[in-house]
C-alpha cells in the first residue's frame, strides 16, 4: 500500500525557500500569487499490516521535525 506523508512548515515559521520561489514566480511575470510555502512529500510503500500508529511514530520521530513542521498522512488506495 502506498502512503503519502506531507510535511509542511508550521504557520509563523519563516520560509526563505518559499519566499524565493515566490520571487521567481513574479519574475516570470505571473501576478496574483499572495504567498508561497514549500514543503515535502514523502511516499512510502508499506505492508498492509503497518498500523496508523506506526506511521504516526515514523512521522514524528523522523519524517517531520516537530519543532518547525507539521505533517499529514494519507493512505492511497491501490
Amino acid at each position: 500500500m502506498k502512503v503519502r506523508v506531507y510535511v509542511s512548515l508550521k504557520n509563523g515559521v519563516l520560509d526563505p525557500q518559499g519566499r524565493a520561489i515566490h520571487h521567481a514566480i513574479e519574475g516570470l511575470g505571473f501576478s496574483g500569487v499572495q504567498d508561497v510555502r514549500a514543503g515535502r512529500l514523502i511516499e512510502l510503500d508499506v505492508d498492509d499490516t503497518v498500523t496508523d500508529d506506526a506511521l504516526e511514530a515514523m512521522a514524528q520521530q523522523l519524517l517531520a521535525n516537530m519543532v518547525i513542521e507539521n505533517y499529514r498522512i494519507e493512505r492511497v488506495a491501490a
Partner: peptide
C-alpha cells in the same frame, strides 16, 4: 544536536537563501 533533541530549536535555511 537539535535534531537529536539534546538542544532545543531547529536550524533552518539561511534567511538570505
Amino acid at each position: 544536536l537539535t535534531e537529536s533533541g539534546l538542544l532545543p530549536g531547529a536550524l533552518m535555511r539561511n534567511a538570505g537563501i
